[in-house]
Nucleic acid binder design. Structure first.
Lengths: 213, 213, 213, 213
DNA sequence: AATGAATGAGGATTCATTCAT
DNA sequence: CATGAATGAATCCTCATTCAT
């Protein structure tokens, strides 16, 4: 799952990372296909036959790699955020020590946005279907979401403690408003509408002003 | 569902308005039920039997009021935004002349948020399923979305012309970031998490800072 | 049910005869409508709503006049042949005594054809659906068919005894071949294709030669 | 149903011909079953579950071989006449050159009758439902019917030109009267009522006399 | 005498899933 | 590994029928 690609065009697949055996590559193809169909058709609308068509194989073949439709979906939903969290963690870890709290938040904004827009199938699948998928399936995703949110909570907490964020904002609400701005991009942005860089720059400016004291 | 309340604050049902004859009330009940189920289960997941259960009648009775499942969904999706636009228009029209452009935007923020959180079934149904519903069904909704967006575009344009909004933000992106913050609230807010008033206040403060020069 | 109309244009309804009270006229309208729909859509395809539309009333109103769909169909099927038999009987009774047997057959040919083509809804309904309707419903129709066939059998028997019909033909088969020629006209004839008179003349010439010694 | 017999006389199944792979045999079984049910229950009365029962499989399995109920029916309706035409063409082609025109007509009478009575499910399905099936479905069948009628028209034309047919008969009406005699046999004949040979002999004698100058 | 509203039974169709090959 | 063939469980929708008015 190591992500190291530069151009968004080359990276739409979480599963792509370090594909190895033929079997592993087929499995990855199915997962990618499922993410794509899931993001477009939704939880109930995702048909295995559609996934199969995108993955270029026959529907029953999916059962060789996943025990059931539910398991396949569960993995897509989970992998989406898990990978997002891995990405954010790596980015934050790479930041120089002593960087101001607000700059760390803005780095997180960039990380979140780039991952979302570049791996958009997984992200939109995760986001759009979060409310539609049965409890059972969401468990692992929810746990992962909490961990991801926890990272952001710590960023906010530090920033507030440092006086970098206005005190008149409720921390939780503020964080959710930021999440909303970022998550929503997947609904309106597309490559023809300008570069990811531009979106990132605007979002950073927007968030900085919104939060700054 | 179709409660006949006076104050918009307590209303969960778009269809409630002025329900009159028994027939009209039944139709409204079905529409409300559909919005609820649609927001929870998604376009493909919405079963007419679920809608019927919520509306407290038998599934085939739905066909007495709506020609097909698609028509029912189409109306839910459309009514959600159409009503939102009507609400926003009314609010803006009621504002005193000469009010600063930024204050008008903040009034719009409040109108959007209150409507969204109070009629949340329709809103989340519209939002979550926008990407999953077949083209055919989205037509009227899309037209309505454009009209709604147009209102906001004019608000922004005026504000920018007045120098009330920073010039380093791309107007379209900025508007989308604001929409994201607002729309996303339906995904995380619930009455137990604090009052709508608090969310409105925070969102207004957030947006004002984010946009102000 | 007395039939006494001259022009085919004025007579498509068995039920029309001597319509009296409003109630009886409505009942007749429903019966005619049922014959029409039944002949076009078949036993299973006849929907009460279609019948209602043709009869210009609402479907549930039918139940005021007929206990059930089955009863309505039963009556159409039965009335069709019963009326045909009444017509044939009247025509034969009106023939002068001592008329040659073959001429009596040809009079029957004319009576059968005229009735079939002029009251075609009932006839085609009866004929086309004879094989599709449940046993239960066919009982009265079957009895009537037998009586009708019996009349023809007697005509043939007499003609054979008189030496007016060739002896190399099996009487039953010959009669069925004649019936086929006549019944089939409802499938291909229509007013635009020439007059009923012409069909009658051709059929009489055809049958006379076919059977004559 | 789909029996693999050599002699046409024993064949009840158009689809039987050269059934090969298991898949092809199943498809043929479904087609035969559909013809049978269609002839008995009519267009609207044909339930897929009935077809499935006769074909000895589950209803949804039909969809593995036919895209829809309509397609299945369309094929039955079409195959019935298409096969009839193929049969007639073969018979006529096999006749010696220089055979009198009337003898060619009588050969056609035999071909038509034998095929009709032996493949009777397809024939009665075609005939009884011709007037009930939606336009859409009849297209291919209608085209085939025209081609079939054209063969007969040519036979009649030649016979008339040769003076073998009386000139007082309208050619079209005469042909339809013959068709009626023949087609109607499927409605009354059954193996218990005597041999096909007998019916053929009677029909030929009947038609010869009816048409001869 | 007739209709608006509703229901229950049934039928076509879809789809995840299985299994033999 | 993969597929062709098949099934059982839904789900939408239609329609005869009922009933209060």
């Amino acid at each position: 799952m190591a992500r190291n690609l530069k151009t968004p065009e080359e990276q739409t697949s979480v599963a792509a990372g370090a594909a190895q055996s033929k079997s592993e590559r087929t499995r990855a193809r199915i997962l990618d296909a499922a993410a794509q169909v899931l993001s477009q058709k939704g939880y109930s609308g995702m048909r295995l036959s559609d996934v199969a068509k995108v993955a270029e194989l026959q529907a029953p073949a999916i059962y060789y790699y996943f025990p059931s439709r539910e398991d396949l979906i569960e993995e897509v939903m989970w992998v989406g955020i898990a990978d997002m969290r891995a990405h954010l963690t790596k980015v934050l870890d790479a930041l120089p020590d002593g960087l101001p709290a607000m700059d760390r938040i803005l780095a997180a904004v960039e990380a979140h946005l780039r991952h979302e827009l570049e791996i958009s199938d997984y992200t939109t699948a995760s986001i759009r279907n979060a409310g539609q998928v049965p409890e059972e399936i969401r468990k692992r995703q929810l746990a992962e979401e909490n961990k991801y949110g926890e990272i952001w909570r710590r960023l906010f907490k530090t920033a507030i403690a440092d006086g970098a964020v206005r005190s008149d904002l409720d921390p939780f609400i503020a964080q959710m408003l930021v999440f909303g701005s970022l998550n929503w991009t997947a609904e309106w942005w597309n490559p023809k509408r300008g570069s990811v860089d531009k979106v990132v720059a605007n979002a950073q400016a927007f968030v900085r002003s919104a939060l700054s004291a």
